[in-house]
Every structure is written in structure tokens, then in C-alpha cells.
């Protein structure tokens, strides 16, 4: 069963910025890309668990603040040649509000 939660208003997350949502399964980072699309990843870098929410967002990727791995917001995969993956969560936008669906995609 998946559940949908309202996270915040669209404008609460700056373009190329992010917000942290704390959930039972740990922190989840919600990102806003420059074209207005939203993404959510588990807030743990596949390298050494750095908080991805705190990284610099660019071209639907985020650079981890601890050691600069680059993680794709679309797939959660680390950019080659690094290897690893952060769990993704579906995000929906309705009526200028951002919703998080708490069921990790594979």
C-alpha cells in the first residue's frame, strides 16, 4: 500500500533547491529542477550516506555535499564511473502543492 502526503507548496522549494522531509523510513529529499519538475530521493548518498538534500542541483542531477558524487534525480544512479543508487520516490504536483508518495520505486 502506498500513501500520499502533502509536503509543501510549490514555491516553498526554490528552483534548483530542495527540502528535507522526515519520514518513518528516514529522511527524504525533495528537489525542484529548473524546468519545474519535482523529484524525491532518499536523503542518503550511496557513497557514505551524505545528505543529498544539501547538495547543488543541476540538470536533473545533484552533487553530494560530502565528496562530490553526482546522483541523477531521474534514476537515483550515481554518475559513472562511480557506482551506486539512491532510492527514488514518486512526487506529484496538484494545485500548486507538492505531494510525496511513500513507496520507493526500484
Amino acid at each position: 500500500m502506498s500513501q500520499m502526503f502533502e509536503v509543501c507548496g510549490v514555491e516553498d522549494i526554490p528552483v534548483l533547491g530542495s527540502k528535507v522531509v522526515s519520514a518513518n523510513e528516514g529522511n527524504i529529499a525533495v528537489f525542484r529542477a529548473s524546468d519545474g519538475e519535482f523529484f524525491a530521493l532518499k536523503d542518503e548518498c550511496p557513497h557514505k550516506q551524505g545528505p543529498l538534500s544539501q547538495g547543488i542541483v543541476h540538470n536533473k542531477k545533484v552533487t553530494c555535499p560530502l565528496h562530490n558524487w553526482v546522483i541523477s534525480l531521474e534514476t537515483g544512479m550515481a554518475q559513472e564511473p562511480d557506482e551506486g543508487c539512491a532510492a527514488r520516490y514518486p512526487v506529484e504536483v496538484k494545485d500548486k502543492k507538492v505531494f510525496l508518495i511513500l513507496k520507493a520505486m526500484d
Binding site: 526554490p14 533547491g17 547543488i56 542541483v57 555535499p65 560530502l66
Partner: peptide, 18 residues
């Protein structure tokens, strides 16, 4: 702010545990 490394955005040094 979105173009600053987290330390300068949060005005503090990030630690290995976040």
C-alpha cells in the same frame, strides 16, 4: 544561494554525519 556550497548556504560546516 542555490549556487553555493552547502557550508556557505547554511553558514556552518557540514560534518560527515550531516
Amino acid at each position: 544561494p542555490q549556487s553555493r556550497f552547502i557550508n556557505e548556504r547554511a553558514h556552518a560546516n557540514i560534518q560527515k554525519d550531516g
